[in-house]
Design a protein around this nucleic acid. Structure first.
Length: 191
DNA sequence: CTCTGGATTAGCT
DNA sequence: GCTAATCCAGAGC
């Protein structure tokens, strides 16, 4: 898994907010039942333990957020608004609750499969939301708590390119912690 | 045990 | 741009 080396290094040596920024330009690949699907990460958000908007605020471990306290590289998938799922990559060492929310991808692998997964949706809307990418790639919820650093994980992250331009913005859909500009957007014209 | 609100999306105006 | 859909986790009693 030499491809994984740089992701492994990134996530085990950087703080959460830096990981969120650095993940832009990585390719997220899911080896699904119909073949590999994936895309370049174009938008992320950081959530840490001292962040009032985080599920892991104050380091409180619950049944739902427990995966956030696993070692960096694990996956945290949670259910929200009764219908949607969101994918996070756990950061920090074991025992510290922090993660990066993957908000958007630009489709690169398995275009035909993604198209089939997103009927009646315009291409630009296939994966441009945290729950849209779960559906578009058909990532199963049972990956929650698994380790994406192991080669047998069906979800892998591979470094592809470094964005020349990153936008830093307030996070979306939260009511606390608005002062933290922890949303990062890959703003290159050509991806 | 009950109640409330949410790291969202799709569809309509 | 505005709002309904829809259900679980967490907090309060």
């Amino acid at each position: 898994m030499c491809n994984n080396q740089s992701f492994n290094t990134l996530i085990t040596t950087h703080a959460t907010v830096d990981v969120a920024k650095e993940l832009l330009g990585y390719e997220l690949i899911f080896y699904g039942p119909n073949g590999p699907v994936g895309g370049i990460i174009t938008e992320t958000e950081a959530y840490t333990e001292d962040d009032p908007a985080s599920h892991a605020f104050n380091g409180k471990i619950t049944k739902r957020n427990a995966p956030m306290f696993l070692a960096a590289g694990h996956l945290y998938i949670y259910f929200i608004y009764g219908i949607h799922h969101c994918l996070n990559i756990v950061t920090e060492k074991e025992g510290v609750g922090a993660a990066v929310l993957i908000r958007a991808l630009q489709p690169t692998i398995g275009i035909d499969i993604i198209k089939k997964n997103r009927p009646n949706v315009k291409q630009k809307d296939w994966l441009n939301g945290p729950s849209k990418l779960m559906r578009g790639l058909t990532i199963p919820v049972n990956l929650n708590g698994t380790n994406a650093l192991t080669s047998d994980c069906p979800l892998q992250l591979v470094f592809r390119r470094k964005p020349t331009s990153i936008q830093t913005l307030p996070r979306i859909g939260i009511s606390k912690g608005m002062d933290r500009l922890w949303r990062f957007y890959y703003s290159d014209k050509t991806v």
